[in-house]
Each structure stands twice: as structure tokens, then as C-alpha cells.
């Protein structure tokens, strides 16, 4: 079976599920690179952090593009699990991708109201 290089681009705070979808391919022996754009990070639950670590263990990587990598998503040694990548670096890296998957919706133009955090 051919091993594929797949990028998941996450531009909307509600679509952190792209990490799980990437992990689903990683465990099928593909290389998954979920990229969180412009700081649209999901809440870093233990489940989410474990998935991000697992993607890395499977020779993929979760990236942050356009925002500093968060310091509340770390491995057991305290090292950041998410790596930073610039827009230009991302474009160059994706030239070699087998698939590029813009996941979910674009970024919202309006700020989410406080009630969103109840979810």
C-alpha cells in the first residue's frame, strides 16, 4: 500500500476535529500533518493533546501557522507538541503533499459570544 502525505488545514476554532481525522490516517500508515491556522486552536483536553502526541509518534506533525505554538499542549518532558510553520514554508511543504484537505469552515469574521464556551 502506498504511503500518502496528507495535510489537514484548520482555519476555524470549531474544526479541531481535523486533528482526529489526521490521526485516523496516521494509524493507517499515512503521514498526517494537521495545521492550525491563525491561532484557531481547539481546547487542549487530554484527549486532544494525546491525539496530537500520537500524530507525532506516527511520524506526522501538528503545526501552528500564523500564531505562536501554545505552551499548554506539551509532552511529559514539558516540550511543545505543536511546531510552528510560516505560510510560505507551509506552501512549499504542501507542494509535495499527496492530498491537501482544507477542513471544515473558514474563519469566522465575528467574535464568538461567551455562550460558545459552554459547549
Amino acid at each position: 500500500m502506498e504511503t500518502l502525505k496528507v495535510y489537514f488545514l484548520i482555519a476555524n476554532r470549531m474544526y479541531g476535529d481535523g486533528v482526529r481525522s489526521g490521526l485516523g490516517l496516521a494509524v493507517e500508515n499515512h503521514y498526517a500533518f494537521p495545521v492550525i491556522m491563525k491561532g484557531e486552536f481547539p481546547p487542549f483536553s487530554k484527549y486532544m493533546s494525546d491525539n496530537i502526541a500520537w500524530v507525532k509518534d506516527m511520524e506526522g506533525q501538528v503545526y501552528s501557522c500564523g500564531a505562536p505554538a501554545p505552551d499548554n499542549c506539551v509532552d511529559e518532558e514539558g516540550d511543545k507538541l505543536i511546531a510552528e510553520i510560516s505560510l510560505e514554508e507551509l506552501g512549499e511543504a504542501m507542494r509535495d503533499a499527496d492530498y491537501i484537505i482544507p477542513y471544515g469552515l473558514p474563519k469566522q469574521t465575528n467574535e464568538p459570544p461567551p455562550s460558545c464556551s459552554a459547549a
Binding site: 485516523g24 490516517l25 493507517e28 499515512h30 477542513y103
Partner: peptide, 18 residues
Amino acid sequence: RTQAFHGAQLEECGNYIV
């Protein structure tokens, strides 16, 4: 199904859109 179905799409299909 699971995300493995997406893996099957990538492996089996010569055409793809998200």
C-alpha cells in the same frame, strides 16, 4: 464506520474532493 473509510477513499479513488 471509522476514519479508516477515509483512508480507503484515498487509496481506492483516482479522483478526490473535500
